[in-house]
Amino acid sequence: MRYAMAIDTRKCVGCSDCVVACQTENNVPIGYCRDWVVEVTDGTYPQLEIEIRSERCNHCENSPCVRCCPTGASHYEAGGLVLVTPHKCIGCGACVVSCPYDARYSHPDGYVDKCTFCMHRIQKGQQPACVEVCPTKCMYFGDLDDPNSDVSRVLKKRKFKTLIPEAGTKPHVYYLI
């Protein structure tokens, strides 16, 4: 099993619903976030294009954050999820520094936190909160090893990219372009 997410930059309108939904679902304190939205505008008026991306932890297959964690608090979970166990985390910040995507933050309670792909939901067969709320339905989630999952199907149909492939992290969040 390899969980992954695909996000359609052609449909995303940058509304940031995915960000609030994550906050309320996962008790992310106000002033912090596990996901965020980037808007890139290129060109000169009126020859313009915009790419909008909802970003979060990429649940990298080769993740530097797991490698550098001194306690094993950052670890892989079934399905390739990268998770942090709060009561093992000493808050040293090494993983925060190690993530090329700046996907982790230091929770005010001291441990490091980040996107969990909503493990508590997917274990119950639900979609992650951000995927479920997105008004443009531009996010697809599922198991890459299952050819019928939403994410496998859409990746078969569409062109996609990952962020900073040069960093060698093998991200599991794909952007449809």
Partner: peptide, 10 residues
Amino acid sequence: IISGRLNPNI
């Protein structure tokens, strides 16, 4: 970043 992200220390 249009979602206003300002995680302290990040």
